[in-house]
Design a protein around this nucleic acid. Sequence first.
DNA 1: GTCTATAGACTGATAGAC
DNA 2: GTCTATCAGTCTATAGAC
Lengths: 214, 214
Amino acid sequence: MKSEQKIEKNASTEEKIKEAARVVFTRKGYAATRTRDIAEESGYNLALINYYFRSKEKLFDIIMVEHLHLFMQSIAGIVNDRSTTLFEKLEIIVAHYIDMLIANPGLPLFILNEINADPDKLISKVGIGEMAHGELYIITQWKEMAAANNAQLVNPLHIFMNLISLTIFPFVACLLIRNRTGISEENFNALMLERKKLIPMWVKTIIMSSMQQT
Amino acid sequence: MKSEQKIEKNASTEEKIKEAARVVFTRKGYAATRTRDIAEESGYNLALINYYFRSKEKLFDIIMVEHLHLFMQSIAGIVNDRSTTLFEKLEIIVAHYIDMLIANPGLPLFILNEINADPDKLISKVGIGEMAHGELYIITQWKEMAAANNAQLVNPLHIFMNLISLTIFPFVACLLIRNRTGISEENFNALMLERKKLIPMWVKTIIMSSMQQT
DNA sequence: GTCTATAGACTGATAGAC
DNA sequence: GTCTATCAGTCTATAGAC
């Protein structure tokens, strides 16, 4: 821990360039980013980018893989955890993502946009097999709940889309929302923290109401 | 109507170039788009783009304004309509957007990304005053409902964010969702059509549950 | 109006001094 | 390791032929 911090404070040139690339790529996207922008942001010269990383694209790939990892990270663990209930999982997932998104608000728009720019690249970069071996435990729990209530639940894909939509979209549209409502970044983050408790409640309500209907 | 169709079929060179620009800009974004891509897509030469539109940026601005108009269009009318109830408005808004998004699935990601790329430009392009004169009637209806139920409702901004999140986000993350779930474009659109009925129901449920709590 | 050819600026990448 | 200088390629925009 101590040594980790030391490394970050006296970061190597390579680390500083990578950090600068992370900032610029995330804000402007791959196509709009100039290697000169990264050099300026890092405080070093343009030539060093090619010295440490062979090309703009290779540097971008490193950043992208780290971002995708940050985004998918630990979700596999959460949804397969046998010690938490279905609704506890919802709370944990939402809390995990909102904390991460407040720290990295530009992340989802960046990732979604780059996937859109080159869909095929995603397939090779995201570990598809990562979450695919066997049925996810959360799905098992879902089916058990449906059986216990003797109910035909709504398509779980809708619930999944609702959960990530409610959690992630406000960050994707952050600037638009703040522009139209005039709220500050501080107040926006406070709203998002409120949603940590509200979203799982809302999703639970949606699930419950879909049971009563049938 | 008939003459409109005729114009579209025998579209002028200017219209063809604009349509090509719309397609390419929307798919690749401003920075990644080359004027040569637009020329190729239009079937005409690169020089004609500068003949009809003075520059890449001016052409982009035209496309962007049209897209923003398409996105904001008629919403002001819906939310100020005195002949519909609050919940009817929710249904109309969601239905309107889902139909529009199935026809233009790339639109929201394009707009959100370009706003992110140049936030200041948005302010000058979107008519800020457009919806700002006087309180929106839907807000009045919201307050009346809160008063009638003698309830302190949840921040309406949350409800608004929920509505647009549930409606728009699946289209923003369309490729990611389809990649992870393996569903076809056809099935994805079918799911979205299901959501036309489901989202207003869910949002209504969320509003109702927030009343019962207080 | 539409084309070809090209100017002028910028980009990613590298050579070579220190 | 880090810098300056520069190359080769690509980009937007335009000049000029038809």
